[in-house]
Amino acid sequence: MAATKIHAIYTDDDLLMQAVKQTRAANYHISEVFTPFPVHGLDHAVGLAPTRIAITSFLYGLVGLSVAVAMMNFMMIHDWPQNIGGKPSFTYYQNMPAFIPIMFELTVFFAGHLMVITFYMRSKLWPFKKAENPDVRTTDDHFLMEVDADNHDVEKLTKFLYDTGASEISLIENEQDH
């Protein structure tokens, strides 16, 4: 496990983007980047795979739709069919026009909430979770790039990071894994 890391702080998003590209081109490994706002194209520059969270949302939506259909089919068609305002209740299909609003609402309800819960779980966000940004300024106007320093000459790496425009460079040892 990587034990030695270097935290390089930048004061500008364009500078950070440039530094990320240079660092990756020089075959150093960027283990994390903390930014105060979404920097356009940074995920791509760091080499992250695209997120699949939208796909989960679609699947959750299908679940919601199925729940709505199953629920109303059971309640209105099978368990207790009623003649309400002459609307046909013999089959689900015949009564369906009246069920469309709730089919839609439940699709959205499941797709939205379950996706957000998935996001919170995957990104480890919940009440009483301790923040893990190493420097408080990274939620304000500073950008922090964490580079693995194992198997690298720290002096050389520091010099390299300095040349990429880092305004602050610190060596972090024995960082706990999380």
Binding site: T35, I53, F119, Y120, W126, P127, K130, E132, T139
Partner: peptide, 23 residues
């Protein structure tokens, strides 16, 4: 507590933007 321990990792931001768009 309110911020749910938001740290601003690049992956978090990537998901954040996708979640916002889908929502």
């Amino acid at each position: 507590i309110l911020s749910f321990g938001w740290s601003g990792r690049v992956k978090d931001w990537q998901r954040f933007e996708e979640v916002s768009l889908v929502l």
